[in-house]
Design a protein around this nucleic acid. Structure first.
Length: 121
RNA sequence: CCAGACGGCUGGACGGCCGCGGCGUUCUCACGAGCGUCGAGGAAAGUCCGGGCUCCACGGAAACACGGUGCCGGGUAACGCCCGGCGGGGGCGACCCCAGGGACAGUGCCACAGAGAGCAGACCGCCAUGACCUGUCAUGGCAAGGGUGAAAGGGUGCGGUAAGAGCGCACCGCGCGGCUGGUAACAGCGGCGGCAUGGCAAACCCCACCGGGAGCAAGACCAAAUAGGGAUGGCAGCAGGCGCAAGUCUGCAGAACUGUUUCCGGUUCGUCAUCCGGGUCGGUCGCGCGAGGCGUCCAGCGAUGGGCGUCCCAGAGGAAUGGCCGUCCAGCUCAGCAAUGAGUGGACAGAACCCGGCUUACAGGCCGUCUGGCACC
């Protein structure tokens, strides 16, 4: 897995654990959930429910979140945590720069913003 | 040129930066990295039919039940699909639409209205005779006309009659049987009958034909853990033997169940380790050469079939096939006489075992064939 050392969450149990941690922040473009991870690196997963739209729209929302995560998390995410990015209704259409600001603000509000590269941990 | 009918194709293009999945290859002990190559649809959708494939059931056949199909011929692996015809209906026409077997096998239903709705019937009427208060009543005949209804027991015309009526005749319709054409559905022709047999089969039903069930979360394999199971060994209560010890052997106990109870019997045992077995999370396969795509020739009205050549063409598994930006061609909106300028900006929609169909959704664009007008020669 590339993306600068960020792995994907692949099991339902991992998603449920992150959701149960109840450490989340909702912004217009996305919803961020986080929890201390079981591995040393940081991992990320994506969720797009039927509320977002039909299958095509959900796919687009998930891909935009993937691109965003690949851009920001390797540089600024705190290692040792798992993140789940949840798509909202505006995720497929929101301006990409605004979406980027949303993710950065969400990381800072959860006090998980880090200027150290994750790969250095 | 205008209006229309039918069939087919397409459904953004180019570039930059950063990425993802499969396969191949090189390097590396390995993790990985580099390079190459391929990577969503006509509907991938709804899951409505038909198959392949897998497991389950099943001795064969028939019958019954249930479900489906329903003009004829052809195509196909098969179909409820497709093609070509037939019949009925619509349109000036190209063409379009049709659940299109059987109502003398039987049962049932036909609301309301109306006199009468299935062994027909007589409200208003029409006609004859009689009576009297001279325009009514009584009796009888009739079913043409009116009225009701989705439908009133053939239709139109002539004859006929007191008035009428298939009462008679002609034509049409209907039924029966015949000849001709056609593979057939059916069509045409002439003959006979004499109105008898209204509609609904998408109410039951009858006839003919077809049909085992469940589905890739099918199914096969590897295999942490847990429950329960099996084998072997050790340890565990008391006493004793052997032995320096580790340990080992014998006897007696204990608990539970069972035979009504006692005696006497029978069966079972706690714990640890290893292995077998089991099969969950997880993993591997199934899972991509196929009723395959493209080109071309032949047969056929066509669906389709055959020959030759050529290509290998997605394979994920919280699920790749993308994210961002720029330019442009269509389109739309606004301004303008126009040239043009500004803004906006791609329809429906995302494979999940695979094929053949059907159905549903779909901005815009392109091509072909044909029909009816108008104009010109």
């Amino acid at each position: 897995m590339a993306s600068g050392g960020v792995e994907r969450l692949r099991r339902r149990a991992d998603y449920l654990r992150v959701q149960a941690a109840e450490r989340r922040i909702a912004l217009p473009g996305l919803l961020l959930q986080a929890a201390p991870g079981e591995t040393g690196c940081c991992r990320v997963g994506f969720t797009a429910s039927r509320k977002v739209g039909n299958a095509v729209t959900r796919n687009r929302a998930r891909r935009r979140l993937k691109a965003l995560a690949g851009e920001i998390l390797p540089k600024h995410a705190t290692p040792g945590h798992d993140y789940v990015l949840v798509a909202r209704r505006d995720t497929p259409v929101r301006d990409y720069a605004a979406l980027r600001r949303d993710l950065e603000a969400a990381l800072k509000k959860l006090r998980l913003w880090s200027d150290l590269p994750a790969g250095a941990a």
